[in-house]
Amino acid sequence: MPEPVVDVRHLTKSYGDFVAVRDLSFAVHPGEIFGLLGPNGAGKTTTIRILMDIYAADRGQVRVLGEHPSRVRSRVGYLPEERGLYRNLKVMEVLVYLAALKGVPPAQARRQAEHWLAQVKLDGWAERKVKDLSRGMQQQLQFVASLVHDPELLVLDEPFQGLDPVNVERLKAILQELQAAGKTIVLSTHQMGLVEELCNRIVLIHRGTAVLYGPLDEIQHRHAPRRVRIRTSASLPPLSGVARVERRGDTYQVELADGTPQELLRALVLQDVPIHSFEVARVPLNEIFVAVVQGEKPGAAERPETESQEAAP
């Protein structure tokens, strides 16, 4: 197993009496998009600032790209949530300066800046002042500033904030391209739909502690209610391991007492029940997030969305 790009072990950070991060551990693997999630005030920004060596940890170990964070600043790109740029400077001037702080020579910085400005459709704005750009354009410029030095690891705190749907799609595509090129991305956002689309694994922090951690699909599977929706032209025979069955027209809502949906499907096929569709309920991440943070069981409040699985004939 390759060494994690980010390795956080038993991290703790307090401000006075307030514990912002408590015994937090997680790892980010090379080439993945990792979601760092949590409600406001959960400790995400503190964790990110420790990863960026802006804050020092009280306790615990943090390794980034195998080193102490202070030693790898030039190999990491960062888009903070609280962000801005020099409004009175020209776009190219800002990018070349920020790249120079990461050790990139001006000529190379200029070439890379031109490439990334073109990627976000800002190529005609290089010699304009930052204050002349619209808010959305400034957002994209800040994103470019975080990767103009070609970092191995990109830490993005709310990168989609303030972007219109077209630019959200463009940014998603760029992130996927970066991942395909082998870059590792730590993504912090409240937009759970985008996390579901982009992230391989996540950690959900609540009150400074990791409450969910692992591959996203596993987490969603783990939190899915034991509920299956079956559409059939026949009546369902009595089935073992089923707690409750509700019928609405040709659709049955089946709540499992034990066993898995696979075992139920196998039993139906063995009994030669004609199945038109077999859906395992899947809980959206947003619901898991809310439920975990509020201490409720996910799927209890609302009817879950489902993921369709066409049954074998």
């Binding site: 960026m52 960062y78 962000r83 702080l101 500033a145």
Partner: peptide
Amino acid sequence: NRVIEILLSS
């Protein structure tokens, strides 16, 4: 300007 955090990451 909020540019400070970007600087402190470098």
